[in-house]
Simulated assay, not measured.
Amino acid sequence: MGLITYDMEVVTPIPPTRMFKAFVFDSDKIFPKILPHAFESIEVIEGDGGPGTIKKITFGEASHFKYAKHRVDAPDQEKLTYSYGWIEGDALMNIFEKISYDIKIEAGPEGGSICKNRSKYYATGDIQFTEEQIKEGKEKVLGLFKALEGYLLANPNAC
């Protein structure tokens, strides 16, 4: 099994606890609202939001994928960390066993927060990725955080 890992950071003016709440606890409602072309729905199909919870993501019309299931591994509201992984669905493209994400949200030096993301792609075989493919993945994650940031800035009472 091959492993591809990349790290990225996103700086945002949103305070850490608010960004964490929005990304971890409220994203099931927010993402389909602000990115309907990307997310049709996100629903809990097993669990209570804690470790072991399974969510089904149904992608929107702009996606070439239909669905993915993601498992919550370790949400920690005190440390503002969140680990989860995609474990099933056509978004794994029959080449990944799973994709895991470790998110950590920290206070930024000038206020706001720094959202750190480590993505790990577990390939079923010995698959090589180009820098362009990795860049595309980072751009999608960046777009997700920036869309959430825009929503929070426009809705100061949300989250």
Rank of each mutant, 00 (worst) to 15 (best):
G50W: 11
D28M: 14
S83I: 02
L80N: 10
S63E: 13
L80Y: 05
H64C: 08
G49E: 07
P51G: 08
G49T: 06
D48K: 13
D48L: 02
P51Y: 06
S41T: 07
K33S: 15
K33N: 03
M93G: 05
I34V: 10
A22S: 05
F96V: 04
E40N: 09
F31D: 11
A68K: 11
E78W: 08
M93Y: 00
P75R: 11
D73P: 13
F20A: 01
D26K: 14
P51W: 09
F20Q: 11
G50D: 12
G52L: 02
H37G: 15
Y67D: 01
D73S: 11
E61W: 08
N94K: 09
E78S: 13
E40T: 02
G49F: 00
F96K: 12
S63W: 05
M19H: 06
I42D: 02
E88M: 08
I34W: 01
D48G: 03
R71G: 08
G89W: 07
I54T: 00
D76Y: 04
F25T: 11
E43A: 15
S27I: 08
G49Q: 03
H37A: 14
F23K: 03
K21D: 14
G60I: 09
T53L: 01
Y67T: 08
D90N: 08
P51C: 00
S41D: 00
P51S: 11
I45P: 12
Q77H: 10
G60E: 07
K21E: 13
I45N: 04
I30Q: 02
N94E: 11
F39Y: 15
S41P: 02
I54E: 02
L80I: 11
H64S: 04
P36H: 08
E43D: 14
I34T: 04
D28E: 14
I57D: 01
A38D: 09
T58Y: 01
H70C: 05
D48E: 07
D73K: 12
T58H: 08
S83Y: 01
K21N: 14
F96W: 12
G50H: 05
F31R: 06
P32F: 10
K55E: 03
E88A: 10
E78N: 14
S63I: 06
K29Y: 13
D90Q: 04
T58S: 01
K21M: 10
G52R: 04
D26N: 15
L80K: 13
V72I: 15
F39Q: 05
F25R: 15
G52Q: 13
M93W: 00
D48N: 14
K55R: 15
R71N: 09
I42V: 00
K79W: 10
K33T: 15
K56T: 12
S27Y: 10
F20P: 00
H64P: 09
I42T: 00
K55T: 04
K66N: 05
E88R: 12
I95V: 11
P32S: 01
G85H: 09
K21H: 10
I30K: 01
F65Q: 05
D90M: 09
V44C: 13
